[in-house]
């Protein structure tokens, strides 16, 4: 479960007030879109959830961890409960698809026996089973992204977070991606998608949290109608 309570985030450099008393609660198993204009604080929320940042003020609770006073040594264990898909994928260029995914299992101390079973399963799930020996540069953008999703999934996190996952995908690919994320959500994983692609969001009947200037301005299920309301 994810819960932000009256959270403020001020960046030291530049003194930007990125979040201004935001409150948000996401239950286990939900599929949530977080939308908002550039600079509204979406990525900042993700950084808080993964303890890359600590809130300047307020409470941030993620899967039983209190980010506002999490000890340094607990951060890895928090991060094992969330899988983040970055906009730029952050794959390792000189590792194969298989290695890119297997490597994060090894990083959390999984035994080889389990890795050998789990990685092919996850690659199958994202439709890349027959490309496991390729290197990232031998894949299309959409395929690279699916590697990133496989990697986020492989340690069986409670939550998957995707930051602008459709950024460089054509509309057809975007729909495919959403179908994949729904499938993952169907397996019981909470899914949080940050985006500003309105068409995509409107196609799906999901909960949509709209953010502007660091506060929630709308939180409703069934699409992103904000502009029409104004």
């Amino acid at each position: 479960m994810i819960e932000l309570q009256d959270v403020y985030q001020v960046y030291n450099e530049g003194g930007t007030h990125a979040l201004n008393g935001i409150s948000l609660k996401i239950d286990d198993g939900e599929f949530v879109f977080v939308v908002g204009p550039s600079g509204s604080g979406k990525s900042t929320i993700i950084k808080l959830l993964s303890a890359e940042l600590r809130p300047t003020q307020g409470r941030v609770h993620v899967n039983g961890f209190e980010i506002e006073n999490i000890p340094h040594k607990d951060i890895p264990y928090l991060r094992r409960t969330i899988g983040v898909v970055y906009q730029d994928f952050r794959l390792i260029d000189n590792k194969t698809v298989y290695e890119n995914v297997a490597f994060v299992m090894r990083a959390v101390g999984a035994p080889q026996r389990i890795i050998k079973k789990r990685v092919p399963y996850v690659l199958e799930l994202v439709g890349l089973k027959n490309k496991s020996r390729r290197f990232p540069h031998q894949l299309s953008g959409g395929e690279q992204q699916r590697v990133a999703i496989a990697r986020a999934l492989v340690n069986n996190p409670d939550v998957i977070i995707a930051d602008e996952p459709t950024g460089n995908l054509d509309p057809a690919r975007s729909v495919e991606l959403m179908t994949l994320l729904e499938k993952i959500n169907g397996l019981g994983t909470t899914v949080l998608v940050v985006t500003h692609e309105r068409e995509l969001v409107n196609q799906l009947e999901k909960r949509v949290v709209a953010i502007e200037r660091g506060v929630v301005i709308s939180d409703r299920t069934g699409g992103y109608y904000l502009d029409e309301e104004k």
Binding site: P76, Y77, R79, V84, R90, A107, R151, N155
Partner: peptide, 17 residues
């Protein structure tokens, strides 16, 4: 460093890295 930052993001402990 890329690998290290990814390892940290996926929950590798400092000791492991």
């Amino acid at each position: 460093r890329e690998e290290i930052s990814i390892m940290k993001m996926v929950g590798a402990t400092d000791g492991f890295i």
